[in-house]
Simulated scan of single mutants.
Amino acid sequence: MADVNRPGAIRKKKRAPLKGSGGKGRRSLEGKGPTPRAEDRPYHKAHKAKKLAERQQRSAGPARQQRLGGKRTSEELVTGRNAVLEALRTDIPAKHIFVMANLEQDERIREILTTVTRRNIPALEITRGEIERLTEGAVHQGVALQVPPYKYPDAGDMTASVLEKWHAGSLSKPPLFVALDGITDPRNLGAIIRSVSAFSGHAVIVPERRAAGVTASAWKTSAGAVSRVPVAKASNLNRVIDQLKDQGVFVVGLAGDGDVALPDLNLATEPLCIVVGSEGKGLSRLVAEKCDQIVSIPIDSAMESLNASMAAGIALYEVSRLRSQASS
């Protein structure tokens, strides 16, 4: 047996590690934990995009919060290149325009950007994920226009103001209003507003509940006429009709079974309010009872009824024609 106490002998008092490096590389073997998300890595382009979006969100303030994780407001979005371009061409009021980052531009996008620059509409560049959340699944084609809520005047105050101008001799034609009873499609509302503007009407009256309002769709369909014809809200349409009658305005309702045919309307030259009912139910019972006359539009017997906006347009044209005929 070797003498371990002899001079020069190797004394091994520590046991050798059983495996590996003896724990020297334990820290390196533990690693650095899970890989951070791309948007949390400062050197990654997703992180830069996230920071840019945060800065734009802060600059947009509450307007941008309406759908980007914040509370929903009554503001609406016009989406799609054609729709946004048409809206801008008709001078629809706009609060912001959202454009997807790295969007491939065509003639429509270039005209959109030129128009918003000329009108000083703030343009915000956002990511694809943000614009998809913003538009909630609608076809956006990389662009969305934010439309602010329409400010409705009170129906009673507005009609009284028009009648005051009439009595003061400030109007060349008698007051002409259109009241809507049960119209829920904003496109019908927009088309009616357009007809009212075309035939020198003074205002459109809509009920406060269960009725279409001035939305982005109504703005588009009106071809910008909403900026020329006020749309007033009535908390109670029957009460507003009573007020109009007390102020000397004749109220006529449109219905297929009217007792007066439109060409025989002898009230056309008087201050007038035309009431248009819904396509399905027509005029409500109380509104029909309050009308001075129920007027029908002669149509082919094979046709069941006319579209509400078409009926309103025909009636307004006939009133305009009768007024022009009477003044000549």
Rank of each mutant, 00 (worst) to 15 (best):
G213L: 09
S21R: 09
A216H: 06
A144L: 06
S197L: 02
E270D: 14
S320E: 01
K45F: 06
I92M: 15
S320T: 00
Q66M: 08
A101H: 02
I274H: 02
R81D: 11
G61D: 12
R119L: 13
S197G: 12
R15N: 12
V196N: 03
W166E: 13
G69T: 06
I131N: 12
Q65D: 14
A46T: 04
I192Q: 04
Y43W: 15
Q247G: 00
E107H: 10
I92Y: 03
M310K: 00
A123P: 06
A203G: 08
R58E: 15
C273W: 01
P298D: 02
E130T: 08
L68D: 14
R133S: 11
R133Y: 08
I241L: 15
P263G: 10
P93E: 13
S197P: 00
G258E: 05
R26C: 01
L316M: 05
V139Q: 14
S195V: 02
A168M: 08
N236C: 10
H44N: 15
K173G: 00
E132A: 12
E54P: 01
H96T: 04
W219V: 09
I97R: 02
L103V: 07
K24Y: 11
E289T: 10
R128N: 05
G31E: 12
A212V: 05
M158T: 13
K14Y: 09
V84N: 05
K12R: 14
H140Y: 06
F98Q: 06
G156K: 15
D242W: 01
A101M: 03
C273N: 04
S284I: 00
S328D: 04
L171H: 10
P149T: 03
L180R: 01
